[in-house]
């Protein structure tokens, strides 16, 4: 579990102050995948680096698995960091070491003996599907393979928490998918808590249980993804399912906040004798629910009744403008 309370981070640059974090509260439950999105410069990396104290917050506390990291310094902080794995956007592998050597590195740091290191490295490479590359050097690997090494290395010291800063941003879509599958699998099988940062909304849809949107160093919105999608006016819902701009008095935005077995639209047209025209949008699977947003034009004499019926069914009906 990760809990950050009242995080502030101020950088001083040539007399100018940059408020990278301006009072951030974050709570990541045990065993969940938590995504943080936000524009460039919003403070996402700073937030992540504050969680393992690579950056010391100017104000506020960080607690991981019951240990208040912000209260620790020196060797005790270093020991606590070993319980937190980190995956980096540009992999950050040692070019002078083989794949096995890279995965063994955190174990050497932790003082694990040689035999145990060998055993654990074998196990980890197996886990990420790179057993055949143990003796290769990072320069000989593809981006996806490098990130697998990064993940194996992050898991070496048996962390309960994994931090990931744009782990898939340098990868192509297919490779991104395989890395996300790997992370999701690790989360399910090892009960690993994952806090990840991304600018790809797809990542949130595909793997995150919860999410937060960071804007100018503050949390604009946070909660379980499925709940946020059902929240009227949600920024996250709008970012996950962007809709085309429509300028028509009959147009509405419909948000599907859960899966429906029945064919809603055909029932709507039959019941109220209205015309429904879909202008854009998408329904996708998120956390096991088929949810999404559509921009539709509903026209006919009983349009108001039709919209009220949709509302009664649990859809979110909002004016398109």
């Amino acid at each position: 579990m990760i809990e950050a309370v009242g995080l502030h981070k101020v950088y001083r640059l040539k007399g100018r102050q940059v408020r990278a974090l301006d009072g951030v509260d974050l709570r990541v439950e045990q065993g969940e995948v938590y995504g943080v999105v936000g524009q460039s410069g919003a403070g996402k990396s700073t937030l992540l680096r504050c969680v393992n104290l690579l950056e010391r917050p100017t104000l506020g506390t960080v607690t991981v698995d019951g240990t208040e990291l912000t209260a620790l310094r020196g060797p005790r902080l270093r020991a606590a960091r070993r319980r937190i794995g980190m995956v980096h956007q540009h992999f950050a592998l040692l070019s002078s070491r083989t794949v096995a050597g890279n995965v063994a590195f955190p174990l050497e740091v932790a003082g694990t003996d040689r035999a145990e290191r060998r055993r654990r490295v074998g196990e980890l490479l197996e886990l990420v599907g790179l057993s055949d590359k143990a003796r290769a050097y990072p320069a000989q690997l593809s981006g996806g393979q490098k990130q697998r090494v990064g993940i194996a290395r992050a898991l070496a010291s048996n962390p309960s928490v994994l931090l990931s800063d744009e782990a898939t941003s340098a990868l192509d879509p297919a490779t991104t998918e395989s890395i996300l599958d790997l992370l999701r699998g690790l989360n399910r099988e090892l009960g690993l808590t994952i806090l990840l940062i991304t600018h790809e909304m797809d990542v949130i849809k595909r793997v995150c249980d919860s999410a937060a949107i960071l804007t100018d160093g503050t949390v604009r919105e946070s909660g379980r993804v499925i709940d946020l999608i059902g929240r009227p006016g949600s920024l996250l819902a709008r970012s996950l399912f962007p809709l085309p701009a429509v300028d028509h008095p009959d147009a509405v935005h419909l948000t599907y906040t859960r899966s429906y077995d029945e064919p809603l639209m055909s029932e709507l047209t039959r019941r109220y004798d209205v015309d429904v025209n879909v202008l854009g949008g998408a329904i996708e699977e998120v956390s096991g629910h088929a949810v999404g947003r559509l921009a539709v034009r509903v026209s006919g004499a009983r349009r108001a009744d039709a919209l009220a019926w949709l509302d009664g069914k649990g859809l979110l009906v909002e004016a398109a403008r």
Binding site: N52, L54, R78, A79, A80, R81, R82, I84, M86, H88, H90, F91, A92, L93, L94, F105, P106, V109, A110, R153, S157, L163
Partner: peptide
């Protein structure tokens, strides 16, 4: 980045 990764590993 590699130095930072080492810090993150508690080195």
């Amino acid at each position: 980045g590699v130095v930072e990764a080492a810090h993150a590993m508690g080195a």
